[in-house]
Design a protein around this nucleic acid. Structure first.
Lengths: 142, 142
DNA sequence: ATATCATGGACTTCGTGACTCCACAATATG
DNA sequence: CATATTGTGGAGTCACGAAGTCCATGATAT
């Protein structure tokens, strides 16, 4: 029930990109600015590319660009790009068979929690997070 | 972000006990009825005893008894007995220092999710789960 | 042609979930 | 009192996945 470092890295990379005026960012830049191990970041970025959240260009002056606007990328997309489908318990997988399924007392609870979690993730875009951060910063200054 | 088997075992043991007319249940009985490895169940029960959810008696005819009524035991108690304090990200730990804490864009989101999860867990008692199960069963029969 | 970027795979390390095993302590019953 | 029956508590095993490293390869701007 914990947020992995990998997911944290992904979110940080994306919010960083969304917050910069420039469009293109090299792995080196992101790695350095966000303190993420370069080689590990490479693996993370590939998943974001595969999911279509980010476009990559090769060669010198290559790098990554957000494929959508920050207000069009929600956290559910990011979560699923990194962790795969959201599933609180294995028996929620339709391929898994559980003898108790029909009468399982727990399932409705985990389902409720999962639904509320998914809703919050869906309702939160990169832009929301960046706005919230700026508000926090202003509060800090005053 | 998954429910561990251990937590599942704990919940199943408790709901099983809460659903039986008898008060006392041996590890053997619970293990057999709920298909939980005996030796592993022993470790789980220890945590429930330590947290005060269950009382244990030794010797022949010994076993475990719920210390409260099923409507007085909520899932948060069970969760924390098994997994410890609920915390989505490590930086929510007050002993952990994070340089970005004040301006972290993600923290509010994980916090919202954690709060909604805790609320659902707190609002759900063993009795709630058992009632829900019975409803499900009836639906199944009809 | 070469330096600079991302890609993709193999590999290592470490922690933890899910167990097992066993010696020990308490206690009910004959 | 002896013994069988129960839970206690600690050590140890095993597999898997998160986190991270390394490197050969492929694309491309200059």
């Amino acid at each position: 029930m914990q947020v992995t470092k990998t997911l944290d890295y992904a979110v940080r990379s994306l919010t960083y990109m969304g917050n910069q005026p420039v469009e293109k960012h090299s792995m080196k830049e992101i790695s350095h600015e966000q303190h993420i191990p370069l080689n590990y970041l490479a693996k993370i970025m590939r998943r974001l590319v595969k999911k279509g959240l980010v476009r990559s260009t090769l060669g010198p002056d290559g790098g990554y660009t957000l494929r959508k606007l920050p207000n069009e990328i929600n956290l559910r997309d990011v979560y699923e790009a990194i962790e795969g489908e959201i599933r609180m318990v294995d028996c929620m997988d339709k391929d898994t068979v559980c003898a108790l399924y029909e009468a399982c007392p727990q399932l409705p609870v985990w389902d409720r929690i999962q639904l509320s979690m998914v809703k919050i993730l869906e309702d939160t875009t990169l832009e929301d997070m960046l706005k919230e951060r700026k508000t926090l910063k202003m509060n800090q200054v005053n």
